[in-house]
Amino acid sequence: MSQAMLTVKQAGPLALIQDTGRFGVGHLGVTQGGAADWVSFRWANWLLGNASDSAALEIVMGGNLTLVANAEVRLALTGADLGATVDGQPLTTNTSFLLRSGQTLIFRQPRRGLRAYLAFPGGLNAPKVLGSRACTAREQIGGLHEDGKPLQTGDQLIWHGGVTAEHVMPEGTKPAMPEKSCQLSMVLGSQAAHFAGRSLYDAFSQAWTVDNRADRMGVRLTGKPLRSSLGGIISEGIPLGAVQIPPDGQPIILMNDRQTIGGYPRLGALTPMACALLAQCLPGTEVRLRPVSASQAQVAYRNQMRVWQ
């Protein structure tokens, strides 16, 4: 029998192989990468009983991404509802399902959320670059062919295999997809002191709009501009979720594929959970920033991690 695989009959606009990301290499100028909605990504692997860092597909928008199986395989689908169907039958997100030999899996368009995650038994098979399979277009690194390219028509997806679990998500744990609006928790950074009181008030009291200039590098928010007394700063390391304020006063939230160092003043950083939520916000979504302490955020994070243990 030939190798079990899924063939990409039609590539959508953006489907990327992702894992938890590339760590311990930031000092080389190499970005973190990894699944943008890491919560949904973790759930996808959990549903199959995979190791939590197993490589999966991050499917953005859908756009008729079409995959055909040549053997029976159990897959798990989480994250956004992209109107996925198997041979025309709608799929339920946040479950695992059987794809039979010859069946066609199609992702249409976002109905709720922006990024869907598709996990494979034992994780997708792709070469590791600098310790990770995360695919970063800008750095031309990772992915199926080690060149950072998203899935192309004709690509063949192979997985590590092994016995898969058929876990079911406990009630009340399903990650919420933002609809028209959502709240994003943020830890204030030390540079916040250089923002005028008025700007600090504006930062947390207004509803920001997610701009269409949004990708895996950064998400721009538009609203009443914020002013800092720091024009620019000496370039320094940028954490995930950093809320960077360029001269136009419109925040840019730096995401997984951000540059490792930068020189704009920062108000603080979204928590990792808020980053996962923001990664699911379509342009036009209204978001409110909510200040939390680092310790509070850590408690919430540890509680979330415990769910998967």
Partner: peptide, 10 residues
């Protein structure tokens, strides 16, 4: 030492 993020310090 400055707070940079939930789990990061400058």
């Amino acid at each position: 030492l400055e707070t940079a993020a939930m789990d990061a310090l400058t």
